[in-house]
Design a protein around this nucleic acid. Sequence first.
DNA 1: GCCGTTTTCGGCCCGACTGTTTTCAGTCG
Length: 586
Amino acid sequence: MENAEVVAMLGEIADLLELTDENPFKVRAYRRAAQVVDTLPVPVAELVRKGELAGLPGVGTHTAERITQFVGAGTCDELERLRGKVPSGVMELLRIESVGPKTAALVWKQLGITSVDALEEAALSGRLSELPRMGAKRSEAIASAVTRHRSRKGRVPLHRALPYAEDLVDRLRAIPGVKQAMAAGSLRRRKETVGDLDLLVSSTNPERVVAAFPKLPGVATLLAQGPTKSTVRLRVGLQVDLRVLHPESFGAALHYFTGSKAHNIAVRTRALHRGLKVNEYGVFDAKGRRIAGEREEDVFRAVGLPWIPPELREGLGELEAAEAGRLPELIEEEDLRGDLHVHSEASSDASSSLLELASAARGFGRSYLAITDHSRSRPLGLDDARLWEHLHTIRWMDQELRGRPHLLAGIEVDILPNGSLDLGDEVLSELDCVVASVHSRFNMSSEEMTERIVRALRTGLVHVLGHPSGRLIGSRDPYPYDLERVLEVAREQGVALEVNAQPERLDLTDQACRLAKQAGVKLVISSDSHNAQHLENLRYGVWVARRGWLEAGDVLNTLPLSELRRRFRRPRRAPSWSHEAPGTSP
DNA sequence: GCCGTTTTCGGCCCGACTGTTTTCAGTCG
């Protein structure tokens, strides 16, 4: 039972309750519980087993009962009871923009509409506009929303959205009268995917900004416009919300629109307890006087907290940590001294030479670089003999470079389905940095995959477990494995887990980083570059690490090379006289 | 349905925009 299934169940109950016109606070309670389970770093089934469910915030006795029943039986009475009252097609109507529970229930009860197709037909034929508070414009809006619904793409990976946000912010800053412009929302929190862009501007002349915004390059359609707010869709499909504020409110708005929702509710609730009110215009005391708003840190100070970095604002204990003075000192990109997972043209799927990689790394200020090409199971990957040769080339190049940067001889060795490594012990034990990764047979059971990884970690030859879950954002799910068990063995073996910074991977995830830290396992942040430009991608890994509450001390490639080498030293397994390679004697 | 620095009962974050109304309900973030 995946947590996502429980989240879906709780969300479905909330939707069904809304459609049956239940108490909105009950609806909200289910939504909150769903969110809590969604951000849970451990399997919810495990909490069920331990009887710890009701200890979660927002999960009381009733919700705990529903979850327990659902985990055991795959459904629960409350869900089935509600499903019996609402046709399933009506549920799908809620996924359509501008159609909420009231509208869905209205068209269902008044017109007998129970499918998206029927809704579209009613909108186009004019039947829809005969309903109360339904006119021609709404019908039209619903019809076009149905079209978009059918071709909907989900959330966009951060690295795709970021350039659009940066470009728009630059253009907004150039509008006369604009004092500040920033991107907020999940983009500022550096979430791995972004739903839409939230842009904020402070200006003494809001009308001018709102008027200029829809005319910016890349904008396809204007969706909504008021005196201080404008919503557009870009040609690439991204929706962008713009809010214009007076400078005295900019900090409060920045805080509010950065979210997350859970974080905001926690801050507002905290403010209420102190007799204060927080909205996007500021923090106000009981007499309605503004006591903060211009700067974000003032908003936090007004509710008795230090400034909290956006990456932590997920409602996952950051307020409590801030209150106790125990916020982590989050890792920064500048803390990273090297990159421990880089492919050269010696791997079939990579394109840069050692020299190109070295000079690019120097440009990014890295002092060391591990060259980790693929092993023989991958097409044209290195076998033992070619790796010996490659190793000597790297050593030679390292001498030539004189530490600008240092090159480490490494490998990304496949973990074969039986858990053994794809190359011989002799050559592996000679390398400075062995990254071991799963690249095949993703469809094993969780037990088999866990055993496979555990066996690899126990060879005593592995320094780093590469992209531990194998996922590709939006295209390949992580393979199932028992993270806690892997962490346990990684700690026992002194193996680090990789935060793969390839923006399509971001693997480990933020939550898994936090668990690894709690389990006492070290991490590395690696670019997995396949050409020299990719070396820049480390920043995406840093953002994941920050969202996982990591500090510089949790990440091994913040260490100077000498200390890193000490960490990576291991007892020799094979006698060192046996691995003379062909053609490599001095 | 959840929860307690005002509460074991009675509250629950807050505001902008649209469309359809003629004062506001619904949706969204």
